[in-house]
Amino acid sequence: MLFFSYFKDLVGREVTVELKNDLAIRGTLHSVDQYLNIKLENTRVVDQDKYPHMLSVRNCFIRGSVVRYVQLPPEGVDVELLHDATRREARGG
C-alpha cells in the first residue's frame, strides 16, 4: 500500500496526471483510492491546443488503470522516507 499511502499524503497539492492516451491533466489532488483512481479538482489540460474541448472541468475522476505518470510537486517528495519505504518493501518480498 506504499503508493496508496504516499498519494494520500499529497492530497490538496497540485499534481499533473498524464494518461496513457497522452492527455495530461493538472489539478488539485482531491483523493485517491486503493486502486489508485485519482480525483482532481479545478483541473485544466496541460496541452490546451491539442485538447481544446477539455479546457477545464470542475471535478475529474481518473481511472487508475489509465494513468501513465503522476508528476509530483518537488516539495511533496520526501526522498529519504520513500527510499526507506522502498527498501523495506524489497526486503518484505
Binding site: 500500500m1 506504499l2 486502486y35 488503470s65 505518470y69 518484505g92 518480498g93
Partner: peptide
C-alpha cells in the same frame, strides 16, 4: 504483515500501470 502489504502494493502498482 509487511510482506503481505508489500505484495499488495506491488500488485496494485502493477495493475495501476501494467507496463509503465
Amino acid at each position: 504483515d509487511l510482506a503481505h502489504t508489500v505484495l499488495q502494493s506491488l500488485r496494485m502498482l502493477r495493475r495501476w500501470s501494467m507496463t509503465e
